[in-house]
Amino acid sequence: MREDIINLKNNAIGQIMDTDSDKELEELRIEYLGRNGKINEFLIDLKKLKPDERKDVGILINESKKTIESTLNDKIENLTQFKVDTKEWFDLTAPGVKSEIGNLHAQTKVLTEILNQFSYLGYQIADGPEVESDYYNFEVLNFPKDHPARDAQQTMFFDVTGTKFKPGELIPRTHTSAMQGRVMQKMKPPFRVVVPGRCFRYEQIDASHGVDFWQVEGFAVDKNITFTDLLGTIEYVLKGVFGSDAQIRFATTFFPFVEPGVDTYLKCTVCKGKGCSFCKKSGWSEIMPAGMIHPNVLSTCKIDPKVWRGFAFAIGLSRVVTLKYKIDDLRTLTNPDLRILKQY
């Protein structure tokens, strides 16, 4: 009988807690506490017990009754107190109030995405001078003086009047590849390095050219690096940045500091390869020139090309940003109009 009482109490509490309906609560009150309710039934049965048991069971019944009563009363009180008018009209579409936060520039965000890919592959970030010497910008990289390979990099040079330098010896660097020699001359392989930074070219400014722009250079040197590792690294990074469905293809090209030379084309993410103004109607965007580091470059940096091999590549950061945001004019990236900045 004790067990039955406890079960009855627990059932009652469970049912009370489960309902939010006034009507059901009233029904439960009658069911358990009413004149012909279940508690009263137990009280009647009490008489059937032996006198020495009656007292304890009687106490249990009374306690259970009180518990059910108080649970029921609490529930009714809660329901009335927090009852809301379900018919009340409320406009959920009314505008909210936004906290005033600022925003990072698209270039910062995209650069972070790119550098994250490299960090997963164990690359460390380096940063170096933009006021650079002809030596690191060209000579270390196997660009002889007076060689037409330099034509591809229209170069500005600093006014060196009054210094020991000859005109042309100090230049605003034309590519982040200038950091290859700086790092390689100071460190023994193996290493994996990525260098984001500003570069400068003598260019007339228009929708696709600027006097300064950003590159992300990467290079790795190790004993067993292969050509397929270069292709795989490019694919890994571009898929990381543009999504796993990004399509890339490779072509042969020439830069004095690599051999073999590789050019990377990304299927235009704007038109999906149909041809548009972003890809000059070709459906593909040239995005990441690369190659195996030329043995002359390694030798110049006192790294034995018979023991070590490396690869290098460069990403045009501004190009990636414009592709990701579908911006058709490079000058947008340096436009400080808040109507633009808010969209990044």
């Binding site: 970030i125 380096a126 700086r182 193996p190 190790d222 590792d229 292709l231 890994y236």
Partner: peptide
């Protein structure tokens, strides 16, 4: 297309 299998530098690179 593969990824390099070698070791990574265990020290900070110059120009870090």
């Amino acid at each position: 297309r593969t990824l390099p299998s070698g070791k990574m530098a265990s020290v900070k690179i110059p120009y870090f």
